[in-house]
């Protein structure tokens, strides 16, 4: 929770602050947090909380795939609409993999997933310079059981609002 509130504070204050924070999970608002404290009110359509909860900040992938499912495209369309309406915000898209695979392959796979989400957002009009990507491979699962139920939630791309262009 501490981590999440840090991300929130940074989001309001500065574009780049998150990058100087060495706590790995500070970058992984999607990777570690489960969101009991959220920036702004979920009922405020311009708030990051609304983006995270109502629009949906994450999309899931099939095993080994970086292809966007229909559901993923719907979520991304919502993210694009929100980002186009809230031009103050920039975002980092985190790519993640489940634990079934080597560390190296999963890092590369996470990058593919993050990039697939980024490309889709760009195709819907979001400026590329507002969207960075990072892969965590299998380093930051959100679910820790070793069954498909958990794996399916770990194979994800999470769009984390990392700051405001207004500074």
């Amino acid at each position: 929770m501490n981590v999440l509130s840090k991300v929130i504070a940074l989001g309001v204050l500065s574009v780049m602050a998150a990058c100087t924070n060495n706590d790995p999970s500070a970058l992984g608002g999607g990777a570690g947090g489960n969101g009991s404290i959220l920036p702004g009110s979920p009922s405020d359509p311009q708030s990051p909380a609304y983006f995270q909860q109502t629009v949906g900040d994450r999309l899931l992938f099939e095993v080994d795939q970086s292809t966007l499912t229909g559901q993923a495209q719907t979520i991304l369309q919502g993210q694009a609409d929100w980002l186009l309406a809230n031009t103050d915000f920039v975002a980092t898209i985190e790519g993640h993999a489940d634990e079934q695979g080597t560390r190296e392959y999963n890092l590369a796979l996470g990058a593919r997933r993050a990039n697939a989400a980024r490309e889709y957002l760009i195709s819907r009009g979001v400026a590329g310079n507002r969207l960075t990507t990072v892969s965590f491979g299998k380093e930051r699962p959100i679910e820790i059981c070793s069954t498909e139920e958990c794996y399916s939630k770990n194979r994800r791309a999470v769009t984390v609002l990392t700051g405001s262009t207004l500074g």
Partner: peptide
Amino acid sequence: FSPRFSPDGRSIVYSLIQGGNT
């Protein structure tokens, strides 16, 4: 990521991700 030294220790081979491709 995934760096490794050459046997003479003078160079490394590694993976670079650009545009999602490694």
